[in-house]
Design a protein around this nucleic acid. Structure first.
Length: 464
RNA sequence: UCCCCGAUAGCUCAAUGGUAGAGCGAGCGGCUGUUAACCGCUAGGUUGCAGGUUCGAGUCCUGCUCGGGGAGCCA
């Protein structure tokens, strides 16, 4: 006998004989001589109703003892439903129980409402809930959409390293990678830890960005991107930060900041369109139960051109707004969350691309503008999340790059291979970084970033 | 890391310093082509951990752990 996923069964013709497999969500017995069992296998949002007749040999002993979470497989015929609530269901001829639930009273994800905070403590079982299976499918859909977008537009996916031997970007705290015995580290004559005896013969860390590496491939393959895990050891405790997260970083050669902004806008719109098109069931759930405006918001994003404003103009807008902010606005200091949200949520009511930031608040590799005061950086701001993308045109002129490295007191020798890119056939190029979880957050309306990644890594939490 | 809030039944929450309760979930029974079904009954607790104040602490105080909201940092 054939076998179907729940998603396939919903689309199949009545009369098909098949087998479905999944986990019990609910069971309702009827004295009419049957039980209704709703099962899910994660292939789509909806549960599938199977109708089990009481004359099955294992009805009293097994079927009537099924509780939420039990795994079963059922043979039968797909029929049009006699009840309301579903168009198709299965008339069952045999049920086999694959796995029981030890103690239904303490089953952690019983068929009732649970808080997200609680479900985080049972991260191994939360994918069995409506919300987390929906998040998993949306996350997958967006990841596939991202790869498809770049693939169809001629980009090459570059696998940049997870372990890096030098803190090239200087972006935040890094996790150390070491095989030394922590209780008995080798020492130099001066008493410092002797990293030369470590695995790589030098200090090594988990990557905070694949950007510098991907630039090497950009200046050979022209259109490239990375999409992989990234690590920050910052002690950040917010609903928008993870110690381990996934980042998308495209890099384009022969391109300036405007090309970069165009790419960011087109890319985001493609992701939103794909999601609404391919996961309508899950998005209907998020729109109904998590955030009543998500679908409307995404549709609005797809239709409207993103607003482009220079940092300098944004500061003027904020100063003239008359709005009282907790932190004052001043040219030269970075915009606060409240400023960014005011711009995107109240002034423009759509995504805003802020461009040309003061050089002193941005990284060394960002291209110096002709005014000598600003660099060709951009941030894409969206309502609720704030900054979802950060990018820049990279400094392709070696002399200017060296000046910036010196001015910021960075060790030039560490950047020897990065500087080589400017010595041998340099070209204007640009790129950006997108926090993948923030994209999932924005698209689902989920309030906490810990609920859009299967096993969140945050300070004091790596249980699963 | 800073500020604020919280931790009581499997889960969500009640309980003037004075015998710890409800809803949901679970078990049993009833009813029903049912839909987060419905109705009845039953079980379920060293009140996060360690101290302290008090005749008496879930409640007040101190420390710790963990969780939440906000901020910083950022993606």
């Amino acid at each position: 006998m054939s076998c179907m996923s729940v998603a396939e069964a919903f689309k199949a013709k009545p009369g098909s004989k098949t087998t479905v497999k999944g986990w019990v969500r609910t069971r309702r017995d009827s004295k009419a001589g049957l039980s209704f069992v709703a099962i899910t296998d994660g292939s789509c949002f909806d549960t599938f109703q199977i109708v089990v007749p009481a004359d099955l040999a294992n009805y009293a002993e097994e079927v009537q003892k099924l509780t939420t979470g039990c795994s079963i497989e059922a043979d039968g015929e797909l029929v049009e439903s006699q009840g309301k609530g579903q168009s198709i269901e299965m008339q069952v001829s045999a049920v086999r129980v694959l796995g029981w639930v030890d103690d239904p009273d303490t089953y952690p994800v019983s068929a009732k409402r649970h808080t997200f905070e609680y479900l985080r403590e049972v991260a191994h079982l939360r994918p069995r809930t409506n919300s987390f299976s929906a998040v998993a499918r949306v996350r997958n859909c967006l990841a596939q959409a991202i790869h498809r977008y770049f693939h169809e537009n001629g980009y090459c996916w570059i696998h940049t390293p997870i372990i890096t031997a030098s803190d090239c970007e200087g972006a935040g705290q890094m996790f150390r990678v070491s095989t030394l015995d922590a209780a008995n580290t080798p020492r130099t004559p001066e008493g410092a830890v002797n990293w030369e005896e470590d695995f790589f013969g030098r200090e090594a860390h988990l990557t905070v960005s694949g950007q510098l590496n991907v630039e090497c491939y950009c200046l050979a393959l022209s259109k490239v991107y990375t999409f992989g895990p990234t690590f920050r050891a910052e002690n950040s405790n917010t609903s928008r930060h993870l110690a381990e997260f996934w980042m998308v970083e495209p890099e384009i050669a022969f391109a300036d900041l405007n090309d970069d902004a165009n790419l960011a806008e087109d890319f985001l719109k493609h992701c939103f369109k794909t999601l609404l098109n391919e996961r309508a069931d899950d998005m209907a759930f998020f729109n109904e139960r998590i955030d009543k405006t998500v679908i409307e918001t995404l549709e609005h994003m797809i239709e409207s051109p993103f607003e482009r404003v220079t940092y300098t103009d944004a500061v003027k807008i904020l100063e003239k707004s008359g709005k009282k902010f907790e932190f004052p606005v001043a040219w030269g200091s970075d915009l606060q969350s409240e400023h960014e949200r005011y711009l995107t949520e109240e002034v423009f009511k759509k995504p805003v691309i802020l461009m040309d930031y003061p050089k002193d608040i941005k990284a060394f590799y960002m291209r110096m503008n002709d005014d000598g005061k600003t660099v060709a950086a951009m941030d894409v701001l969206v309502p609720k999340i704030g900054e979802i993308i950060g990018g820049s045109q990279r400094e392709e002129r070696l002399d200017v790059l060296d000046q910036r490295i010196d001015a910021m007191g960075l060790p030039k020798e560490n950047y020897w291979w990065y500087r080589d890119l400017r010595r041998y056939g340099t070209v204007p190029h640009a790129g950006f970084g997108l926090g993948f979880e923030r994209l999932v957050q924005f698209c689902t309306g989920m309030a906490n970033i810990r609920d859009v990644i299967p096993f969140p890594r945050t300070p004091k939490n790596a249980e699963f």
